[in-house]
């Protein structure tokens, strides 16, 4: 695939924020990403947001953030799922030629909702929901498949994360509507900006009884697609580091194995999700972690996001520190 430049990243801190509204959180993350990319909202062609209505207590939860993501009289789509999935979709719309610059934003106010009640409503209403299953109970079942005790839940946290993606080639940059914008972007892309070079996502079985909970075929499938796109033949050797979404401690080993990264030493150098990262923000936060590191140190890195019971939904993004030299139209890897 054509690489996609990751122009800017931004996020809030992650902690319960009783006095802060959802639009206020999203505004902070969005403005941070725009500032990081040295862009204004006028430079953004489209937005992909990620949120879940039941967590927000709002129907069409992107309505609440329309203004702060700059979507008034502009295109926006909401992916109901993890922010990394939204990033994949944003990248897809750039590859399609629909847009040149896409803002991806994920938010969740974990402290505002009842995780047990909300995640219980994720299970099918015929067989599993009446059993009282929720994310924690499902995780306990998965942990027990490894002969581990029920895992501890992360502390609830609120927050938002934002990433700005852009078409990488100068040819496309020159097609931008405003000359000064093209100039601004050229300046930015001459900075060391990582590129998204591979992505994959997939859905696992829903019924826990139909799954081998010690395996993660959807993650293996998503990783296979992402590695193939990024032309990685030996990820364990070729990846410099990886940031994965271990919503529970036991998942670190499970996800690493499915990614082919068992015993990989540079896993979650950021500390992972242990400090408390809101659900659905986590995957995009993982991407931000690898972007920040890639800006400092060349290499290829992996970001992982998952959502749903026992990680039923899985997404993988590969980024590297290639420098787009837009002045001479060459992509130097």
């Amino acid at each position: 695939m054509q690489p996609i430049t990751i122009l800017g990243v931004g996020r809030t801190d992650y902690a319960p924020k009783p006095g802060v509204s959802i639009p206020e959180m999203v505004h902070v993350a969005t403005q941070a990403a725009l500032a990081d990319a040295e862009l204004t909202m006028q430079d953004v062609d489209a937005r992909v947001t990620a949120s879940v209505d039941l967590w927000d207590g709002l129907t069409a939860s992107n309505i609440a953030i329309t203004e702060v993501v700059g979507a008034v009289m502009q295109p926006e789509a909401r992916v109901a799922g993890d922010g990394l999935l939204a990033a994949c979709h944003g990248a897809m719309s750039i590859l399609a030629g629909a847009y040149n610059v896409v803002l991806v934003v994920a938010h969740c106010k974990g402290s505002m909702g009842d995780s047990a009640a909300i995640s219980n409503w994720t299970f099918d209403p015929i067989y599993q929901q009446p059993l009282g299953l929720d994310d924690a109970a499902a995780a306990a079942l998965q942990a027990s498949a490894f002969s581990l005790p029920p895992p501890l839940e992360r502390p609830p946290a609120d927050g938002a994360a934002a990433v700005i993606l852009a078409r990488a080639s100068e040819t496309d940059l020159s097609g931008f509507r405003r000359p000064e914008r093209s100039l601004a972007l050229n300046q930015i892309v001459n900075r060391l900006n990582p590129q998204l070079i591979g992505m994959g996502w997939a859905l696992d079985e829903h019924y826990l009884g139909d799954r081998d909970l010690t395996d993660a075929p959807a993650l293996r499938d998503a990783a296979r697609r992402a590695f193939s796109m990024a032309k990685l033949n030996d990820p364990k050797r070729e990846l410099a580091w990886a940031e994965i979404s271990e919503h529970f401690d036991y998942q670190r080993v499970l996800w690493a194995r499915a990614l082919g990264l068992a015993d990989f030493s540079n896993l979650n150098l950021s500390g992972g999700l242990a400090r408390g990262v809101p659900p659905f923000v986590a995957g995009l936060d993982r991407l931000i972690e690898i972007v920040l590191r890639l800006r400092e140190k060349p290499g290829t890195a992996l970001a992982h996001g998952c959502w749903g019971p026992c990680g039923q939904g899985q997404a993988v993004v590969i980024a590297d520190s290639a420098i787009v030299r837009s002045c001479d139209s060459a992509i130097v890897r």
Binding site: E76, A77, V79, L203, H206, A218
Partner: peptide
């Protein structure tokens, strides 16, 4: 999602009212 054949396929949901 399984009803749409989404199992082990790239599957996502859009919701915008």
């Amino acid at each position: 999602g399984e009803g749409a054949g989404g199992y082990l396929k790239p599957t996502l949901k859009i919701a915008t009212g």
